[in-house]
């Protein structure tokens, strides 16, 4: 192929920047990251872009391609035939340089989430039907595209009130684990701020691992919070039976 692609890549740092145009020869099956590498190797060796595996396993290369949060290694150039491909860094996080952003906030949040508290020592006796439900969340590659697109974090400066979709599925992963004995509902209702989410599902739309973040994690967690903090009948019943903070409805049984 003798065609070429036109890219407009945002170049700059904390102090500001602009889009710079590059031309890259087309190759069969080329992804955006290939094009950026071509630029890096030939025109601009200092073009900053994070990448590791180039196989959509590590989640390093999240950026916004024509306004859509995407993994650069999985976004094919031939999807954009005839268009200029604009590549920008994730807008929700502070810029470091070019396409590299400071995502350290996410690692701070990660520390706030209590680990699994097994109700019995390993090896666990656990059936696949129970594993299935949480394994979906284990597919997360922490590309933070959901955090980038989440309007609570992106538009409403919600970083202090909401952990973001990535950490909702992390909490769900432990909370719905059949062998977990910890209670994370108060965390969800308060610090993690699950109700800051208004279920508009952009996180699910951008997830490169096709995790149904909203339907399978956030909404079920919201329902658990509703059980505890909003449902008047359940609250009343708990008061009457004297159990103030017992996990509702979840059976934390130790299997035999």
């Amino acid at each position: 192929m003798s065609e070429e692609f036109t890219l407009r890549v945002w170049r700059g740092d904390k102090t500001g920047g602009e889009e710079v145009e590059y031309h890259v020869p087309a190759e069969t099956g080329m992804v955006v990251l290939d094009a950026l590498h071509h630029i890096q190797h030939n025109e601009a060796p200092d073009l900053a872009v994070r990448w590791n595996c180039k196989a959509a396993h590590c989640g390093s290369c999240g950026a916004e391609v024509n306004g859509q949060p995407k993994l650069l290694c999985k976004t094919r150039m031939d999807d954009y035939v005839g268009q200029t491909v604009s590549v920008k860094p994730m807008q929700t996080f502070p810029i470091i340089k070019d396409l590299v952003t400071d995502v350290s906030w996410n690692y701070q949040v990660a520390k706030e989430i209590p680990m699994l508290e097994p109700t019995a020592p390993a090896p666990f006796n656990m059936q696949q039907i129970d594993a299935d439900r949480v394994q979906e969340f284990h597919r997360c590659i922490e590309c933070f595209l959901c955090q980038d697109t989440c309007h609570v974090l992106r538009n409403h400066e919600g970083q202090r009130q909401y952990f973001g979709p990535r950490f909702m599925i992390k909490i769900a992963e432990f909370e719905m684990h059949p062998m977990d004995g910890a209670d994370r509902v108060p965390l969800l209702a308060h610090e993690a701020g699950v109700n800051m989410c208004n279920v508009t599902k952009c996180c699910t739309e951008v997830c490169p691992q096709h995790i149904r973040i909203t339907d399978n994690a956030i909404i079920p967690l919201k329902e658990r919070v509703a059980d505890r903090y909003y449902d008047p009948v359940k609250i009343l019943l708990r008061r009457l039976s004297g159990k103030k903070n017992a996990p509702t409805g979840s059976s934390h049984k130790v299997s035999q």
Binding site: P121, M126, F174
Partner: peptide, 20 residues
């Protein structure tokens, strides 16, 4: 490997509920 399981890794299971 069992350590991993108690730290939260969820392996595929056998019919008997053990690690596949």
């Amino acid at each position: 490997v069992l350590e991993l399981e108690s730290w939260g890794a969820v392996f595929d299971r056998t019919k008997e509920g053990r690690i596949m």
